[in-house]
């Protein structure tokens, strides 16, 4: 099955349980929004999927196209086709975007094969144009001194360059003004297609006006409490998370 599947996942950090039996499936080719109030465990889920070492999975399974993701190191997961756009991406002082992405792409090539520099730059410039980024950006150090919008665009640029099978976008809309939001959304939309599954984590409905999801899931207290079509997001906006919480009658699947 070509999907990213999370089954009955339990996660703790420092002894505290954050994710409590979460089940979710994102097939390739679909965009799923994961919404939820602050502290519901959305970002924890993203970090666990990416392989952050601080979190402990105490129960459950995560499979990517049938492969057990939890057995892989973070870099192996990425090379297998998982990508995460961070809510707060790290600065990497002194390492230029060009060199950073080059190292990332080089790591996906078979040993002994060298990245073709001309093709690489052609592709990089093409993707930068898509995100309305100036070419001079390539020689700036990754995220160092970037504005919120620049950081998010850089995350999407990496997504575009690395061509993953599944992408988790963690609060990609936070810190963006309306212009930046549109640019980022445009970038994501242009990457949509049958080869990419997207899990779009967001607190607000507004992003979903620009990246229209196929499905919406609502996460409360470490679990999915409701799932539905894109209209669910609007309903949620209207009625609030308390409604979703109360309505949690049966375990929700998509």
């Amino acid at each position: 099955m070509k999907e990213l599947s999370v089954e009955n996942l339990h996660v703790t950090i420092g002894g505290q349980q954050i994710v409590r039996g979460l089940t979710l499936r994102v097939p390739r080719g679909e965009v799923h929004a994961l919404m939820g109030p602050n502290g519901s465990g959305k970002s924890t889920l993203a970090k666990v999927l990416a392989g952050h070492p601080d979190y402990e999975v105490t129960k459950g399974k995560v499979l990517m196209d049938g492969e057990n993701l939890l057995e892989l190191d973070p870099d192996e997961r990425a090379r297998c086709g998982l990508f995460m756009a961070f809510q707060y991406p790290s600065e990497v002082p002194g390492v230029t975007i060009a060199n950073f992405l080059r190292a990332a792409i080089q790591s996906r090539l078979p040993e002994g094969e060298e990245l073709e520099a001309t093709d690489y730059y052609a592709k990089l410039y093409e993707k930068m144009e898509l995100l309305r980024m100036d070419r001079s950006f390539t020689s700036r150090a990754v995220n160092e001194g970037f504005s919120g919008g620049e950081k998010k665009r850089t995350e999407i640029l990496q997504l575009a360059m690395l061509e993953p099978k599944y992408a988790i976008l963690d609060e990609t809309d936070s810190g963006l003004d309306i212009d930046a939001l549109k640019t980022v959304a445009h970038g994501v939309n242009s990457l949509r297609g049958p080869d990419l599954g997207v899990l779009l984590i967001t607190h607000y409905q507004r992003l979903l006006n620009y990246i229209v999801p196929d499905y919406v899931h609502v996460m409360v207290a470490g679990r999915i409490v409701r799932s539905g079509r894109k209209e669910l997001a609007l309903e949620l906006e209207e009625r609030g998370y308390d409604w979703a919480r109360e309505e949690r009658a049966e375990p929700a699947l998509r």
Partner: peptide, 19 residues
Amino acid sequence: ELFYLRTRGIPVPVAQRLI
């Protein structure tokens, strides 16, 4: 920072070297 580089597929020794 190291985790960030690893999530891009960069193996630890290469990531450390870049940093």
